[in-house]
Amino acid sequence: MSETRSDGELLAAVAEERDRGAFEELYRRYAPWLTARMRSRCSDAGVVDDVVQETFLAVWRGTARYRETGADAAGWLWRIASRRLVDALRGAGARGRLRQTLARLRHRDEASAEERVLAGVEHGDLAGALVRLSPELRAVLQATVLDGLTTREAAVLLGIPPGTVKTRAMRARKQLREALA
Score class of each variant (00 low, 15 high):
residue 102 L to P: 00
residue 151 T to G: 14
residue 145 V to W: 13
residue 107 H to A: 09
residue 109 D to T: 09
residue 111 A to Q: 13
residue 130 L to M: 12
residue 122 E to Q: 13
residue 94 A to H: 01
residue 170 M to D: 03
residue 113 A to R: 07
residue 146 L to W: 10
residue 123 H to V: 15
residue 139 A to F: 04
residue 94 A to V: 01
residue 144 T to M: 12
residue 126 L to Q: 04
residue 150 T to K: 05
residue 113 A to S: 07
residue 165 V to Y: 04
residue 104 R to S: 15
residue 151 T to C: 08
residue 123 H to D: 09
residue 128 G to D: 11
residue 105 L to T: 08
residue 107 H to F: 03
residue 165 V to P: 10
residue 138 R to G: 10
residue 147 D to I: 02
residue 100 Q to V: 06
residue 104 R to I: 04
residue 130 L to C: 11
residue 132 R to E: 15
residue 143 A to S: 10
residue 98 L to F: 02
residue 117 V to E: 11
residue 135 P to F: 03
residue 99 R to M: 05
residue 98 L to P: 00
residue 149 L to C: 05
residue 117 V to T: 10
residue 109 D to H: 06
residue 130 L to K: 02
residue 150 T to V: 02
residue 145 V to A: 12
residue 163 G to N: 07
residue 115 E to K: 01
residue 172 A to D: 03
residue 151 T to K: 10
residue 103 A to W: 08
residue 138 R to M: 07
residue 101 T to Q: 10
residue 126 L to H: 02
residue 126 L to M: 07
residue 127 A to Q: 14
residue 109 D to I: 01
residue 118 L to H: 06
residue 158 L to H: 12
residue 161 P to T: 05
residue 150 T to Y: 04
residue 93 G to V: 00
residue 147 D to K: 04
residue 158 L to Q: 12
residue 109 D to V: 07
residue 108 R to I: 06
residue 119 A to E: 13
residue 140 V to Q: 04
residue 127 A to F: 12
residue 109 D to L: 11
residue 125 D to N: 08
residue 101 T to D: 09
residue 136 E to W: 01
residue 146 L to Q: 14
residue 149 L to M: 15
residue 118 L to I: 05
residue 110 E to N: 00
residue 108 R to C: 01
residue 151 T to H: 11
residue 124 G to H: 03
residue 125 D to M: 03
residue 157 L to S: 14
residue 142 Q to E: 15
residue 150 T to G: 13
residue 147 D to G: 15
residue 128 G to K: 08
residue 120 G to F: 00
residue 156 V to D: 14
residue 155 A to E: 08
residue 108 R to P: 03
residue 143 A to F: 04
residue 140 V to K: 01
residue 164 T to N: 11
residue 146 L to T: 14
residue 100 Q to I: 00
residue 102 L to F: 07
residue 104 R to K: 12
residue 158 L to D: 10
residue 113 A to W: 05
residue 160 I to W: 06
residue 102 L to C: 05
residue 102 L to N: 02
residue 167 T to H: 08
residue 159 G to H: 06
residue 142 Q to W: 09
residue 156 V to H: 05
residue 125 D to G: 15
residue 101 T to V: 11
residue 171 R to H: 09
residue 141 L to R: 05
residue 153 E to T: 01
residue 108 R to N: 04
residue 142 Q to R: 08
residue 151 T to Y: 12
residue 112 S to R: 07
residue 117 V to R: 12
residue 143 A to Q: 08
residue 167 T to Q: 11
residue 106 R to Y: 02
residue 93 G to L: 01
residue 114 E to R: 09
residue 154 A to D: 09
residue 121 V to W: 03
residue 136 E to C: 01
residue 99 R to L: 10
residue 162 P to C: 02
residue 143 A to M: 00
residue 112 S to A: 04
residue 148 G to E: 09
residue 155 A to F: 05
residue 96 G to I: 00
residue 167 T to V: 12
residue 131 V to H: 09
residue 167 T to R: 13
residue 163 G to L: 07
residue 105 L to Y: 01
residue 123 H to F: 00
residue 157 L to P: 03
residue 156 V to C: 00
residue 138 R to F: 10
residue 139 A to V: 06
residue 161 P to L: 02
residue 133 L to E: 01
residue 133 L to T: 01
residue 148 G to R: 13
residue 129 A to I: 09
residue 117 V to M: 09
residue 129 A to Y: 04
residue 147 D to H: 14
residue 172 A to P: 06
